[in-house]
Simulated assay, not measured.
Amino acid sequence: MVYAAASGTFRTPFRPELGRVGYRVVKRAFDVVFSGAVIAVAAVPSALLCLAIRLESPGNPIYSQIRMGRLDRDGTLHPFRMYKFRSMYADADERLEGLLDKNEVEGAMFKMRDDPRVTRIGRFIRRHSIDEFPQFVNVFLGQMSVVGPRPPLPREIPEYSEGDFRRLAVKPGLTGPWQVSGRSDLSFSEMVELDLGYIERRGFLYDLYLIARTIKIVFTGEGAA
């Protein structure tokens, strides 16, 4: 694997197959319409939530983070800026290094159930996945899809095996099989297995099924960290 520091891109030995043009066209059309509708409906509640986040703790209520997108045909992996409602204190990234030894999952991912960096409002919006709603902007811009594997952090990529890279053969998503099958209760290897299963059987009806399951989890908070 080769890393280009100037652009933040990675080049991997894995070369994805980018077929199924018809499905990808329909999926992109759905992404634009669905994300546009959510953004319009959620505009006022989102503004109120931003105010509440800002009142509880200083800092921008919208948190942005560099994530890695889908692999190109030549194996290049490009970064993009992903958005969330801020669920942690503003210095959360600086405090991460001191918490790495408390990681509760194996592999290239960090999860901690009682993370001290999470605010009170943050615990609620994370439990119900409300913190992810700003990613509908990423979906509308074409950086993500509504359904797909979650986009990894750049620091996680060097730990990937060649098999792990296969989960990045499709555009990353806001929700997917990991979110509806246990979320933080699953290990990294289990997440990869679920993502590869999704890539094998993906289709428009399956995407709709995963969206319906996700809506249920938004209300129940099942499997949240």
Rank of each mutant, 00 (worst) to 15 (best):
V180R: 03
G176L: 01
S46F: 11
S161G: 06
Y206I: 12
D131P: 00
V2K: 14
E94R: 14
G107S: 03
D101L: 13
Y83F: 13
A108D: 11
N103T: 11
I121T: 01
E97V: 04
L186V: 07
I157V: 15
V21A: 13
F85Q: 01
E222Y: 05
R126N: 01
V26C: 14
D164M: 02
M144H: 03
A92I: 08
D115R: 00
A43P: 09
R15Y: 10
F10G: 05
A47N: 04
L51G: 05
G221D: 10
L55P: 02
D72P: 14
E106S: 12
N138L: 12
S64V: 12
L99T: 07
S129I: 05
Y206N: 15
D185T: 14
K84V: 04
R183V: 06
F80G: 01
F204R: 15
P177M: 14
T214Q: 02
S189Y: 06
D114V: 07
M82Y: 10
R150D: 00
A29N: 04
R150P: 00
L99G: 09
D101H: 15
L168V: 06
A92V: 03
F188P: 12
A92P: 02
A42Q: 08
Q143K: 13
R155Q: 15
T12K: 03
S189T: 13
L194P: 02
A90V: 13
E190G: 05
D195T: 00
Q143I: 10
R86M: 01
I199F: 10
P172Y: 11
V118F: 00
T175L: 02
D115P: 02
V118Q: 02
R95F: 05
A37S: 14
R166N: 04
I66K: 09
M1H: 11
Q135Y: 08
I39T: 11
M109A: 14
S46T: 13
S161L: 03
F136D: 09
T220G: 10
R166G: 09
I157E: 05
Y83S: 13
L77Q: 06
G122H: 00
L49D: 06
L51F: 12
R167I: 03
G59L: 03
Y206M: 15
I66N: 01
L99N: 08
A37Y: 06
G22D: 14
R11A: 08
I217H: 12
G203T: 07
K102L: 14
V137H: 11
A29G: 11
V170K: 10
A43G: 07
S181W: 02
Y209E: 14
F14I: 11
I130T: 01
S46A: 13
I66E: 08
F188C: 10
I130C: 00
R11S: 13
Q135E: 13
M144F: 03
P116W: 09
H78D: 10
I53D: 02
F80L: 02
G163A: 12
R126F: 00
R11H: 12
E17K: 10
D91G: 08
D164P: 07
E56L: 05
A4H: 13
R73H: 15
A169W: 12
L18D: 15
R113I: 12
G142P: 04
R123S: 00
R81T: 10
G36Q: 11
L174S: 04
D74K: 05
P177V: 11
S184P: 06
L51T: 13
L71N: 07
I121H: 01
G223W: 04
D115H: 01
